[in-house]
Design a protein around this nucleic acid. Sequence first.
DNA 1: GGTATTTGACCAGT
DNA 2: ACTGGTCAAATACC
Length: 340
Amino acid sequence: MENMGDWEQKDLVNELMLGRELARQLQIHLNVPSSSPETRETLVHEIQASYEKALSMLNPTGSIAIGVSESPPSLSGSPRTEDSERELKDHDLRHASRKRKGMPRWTRQVRVSPGIGLEGPLDDGFSWRKYGQKDILGAKYPRGYYRCTERIVQGCLATKQVQLSNEDPTIFQITYRGRHTCTQAHMLSPSKPLQNQGPTNTVMEPQKPQENLQQQSQDLSSDFLSGLKVITEVLDSSQQSVPPFYFPSAASVKADNEAFSPYVVDKSFIENSHFSLSSSGMHHYSFGGNRNFQTSAEAELTDIICAATSTTDSPTIGLDFPFANVEFDPNTFDNSGFLS
DNA sequence: GGTATTTGACCAGT
DNA sequence: ACTGGTCAAATACC
């Protein structure tokens, strides 16, 4: 058994190494004329984020991590989450524990500004399928459960939960769990996110440099940003306290949407603004509606916080698997668009 | 008809 | 026993 100190130190080292690697990448990009300014900027921000994380580790009172703290780190000392997932997958997804206790998870909060239209956390480029919604004790709004659409085909166990903040309905709390093991993860590249996008939609620009930033800072490991687009419906402020809230599940929402409130997420938009990956030609999802809402370009999307929490050993974002062992996996960076 | 979502029930962890 | 997470049948949508 290892003591906490060891874990912290390990995470700190990982974070610092990550920063070093990012700096290295930046250097490479600086020497490559074809490298886009956005990429460089992203790297810079990533480096900063990495240092901030490292500092926050040294200073527990730091405000970076908000955690969704979950179960304590694995006592075995080895990052077994991924292995556990694979085991489950290998055995039988259906019979696997319904509560994936050992899954790493991190939360991201996204603010949507009513009246402006908004958007959310963007596209992570992953396709998600809603498999449940539940009222949570103490929460005003239900929580929506989404899983990677590649789950069945590729056994990808990544899932995410979306819920409106109790205190501030303008904030979406998105919790990612598990790592993407599907091909989507390998195809994503923040630097060129919308490759498959057909018509350009001005509605939302899924990948602004800043967003890349956010993404990378949250999950360097790539996979996760999840893609939601949240659109704020234009309603009167009086309605902000809002009634029923539903999550965007991709599509269906339409009918009910009308009924709900300030935030509508609706698949119908997809047509206007979509993101998606499509290696497999799956669906494009986006949350948000497009009816009376204003869209994203002006939307004030604020990624307020992102925190990563690993149930097992790495409490920091981006250190989740690949970095947990203090090894950089080129693919990881590749996924993040750091490498060509 | 195929695919995605909804929703009540079931199961596991605390 | 309670709560959160997932399953799966029913339903809706394209």
